[in-house]
Design a protein around this nucleic acid. Sequence first.
DNA 1: TAAGATACTGAACGAATGTTCAGGATTCAG
DNA 2: CTGAATCCTGAACATTCGTTCAGTATCTTA
Lengths: 196, 196
Amino acid sequence: MNKKQLQSEQTRKRVADAARQLFVQKGYKATSIEDITDATGSSKGNIYYHFKSKEGLFIYLLDEWDRDWIAKWQEKEHHYTSAAEKMYGFAEQMVREDLNHPLTKAVDEFFVGDDKTSDIEERLAEMVANHISFNRSLIQQGIDSGEFKPGDAEGLAYVLEALVIGLSQVSRRASLQQALDTYRLAIDVFLHGIAT
Amino acid sequence: MNKKQLQSEQTRKRVADAARQLFVQKGYKATSIEDITDATGSSKGNIYYHFKSKEGLFIYLLDEWDRDWIAKWQEKEHHYTSAAEKMYGFAEQMVREDLNHPLTKAVDEFFVGDDKTSDIEERLAEMVANHISFNRSLIQQGIDSGEFKPGDAEGLAYVLEALVIGLSQVSRRASLQQALDTYRLAIDVFLHGIAT
DNA sequence: TAAGATACTGAACGAATGTTCAGGATTCAG
DNA sequence: CTGAATCCTGAACATTCGTTCAGTATCTTA
């Protein structure tokens, strides 16, 4: 790899990291390009050299997040034997990774904006569908194995999604330990709620 | 009441209604004063005649919301006999009133802004504490009556809060029927999760 | 009915924001 | 070593937004 390519990749990463942190912290609209330049030392122009636009940068982060999250999950998934264990593992990864679900405030806020390009809207819809589908599969496994009551797996997938999104918001200003406790308690309740 | 006073009150209400709808729909930052003038026909200046600022308008709406919500709740509360019934009633009012919890996206977004006045921040913290306290009391009643397992009522109050906040976000683009179904299912799970 | 109070208008302003662009610096290929 | 490619800068631009204010219309009061 070139020195040029290396440096380019490094700045790209530096910008992405700072932007991610800011978006999570302040939300999409409230984070300005200048906030990002302040945090990275890069110039405005440089950000637009590496990313198409603010929207593009945001979508890039979402994509990256999703990929990372799934990769990490797949490493762990084998080690869990029951659906209940998987559920706890799921919650723990949620907390430990970033104390924030990708579908959090920033995304929701981004969603309601009116001037999105249609391809970006498609991408977002796809992501939501993927998350629901992931949840449904997790729940369906438990139903099939007899751990959970047979029932509306799709509906429960939405409930789980709601729970996780809500937890990330409620826990945003909590300590790691508090967050872990709350998540664990929430999963406890959810599991008892759907257990046979 | 004067014709002047009447008209003044009417416009005030007209502005508040439009603003509430827009804040819920688009979020705090994304809703401009001009959006509100477009929706009401009033001029910008007129909004600043009736409200101190955009922040002031928002806080006014929150206050109003909380008062209305509690008033409506207290009308109904007598008719419920068990804590479980109360819980379902709670969820239903949540959906029917506005399909949105007062502590929703807009508030959370408002929260992370950096330029709030300190008295407004106090007011917000107070509101959050009130909601948690409301939830805890609801749960404690169920524990006392033997409907729910004895346990961490405070922790469960946060879980319930998270669930409700998440539900409002997930249901934002759903039909009324879908929303009611999802909320009901969520409360089902939550109740089974903490039942004796 | 006259004077004052109240309700409202809309142009103007300053601050902030996303984006562009002409050009400078650094590195690569031949 | 030289020209081209790549990486980066920062001033400039066009918009948008919250807020103000001088002035007008409408109503109240005496």
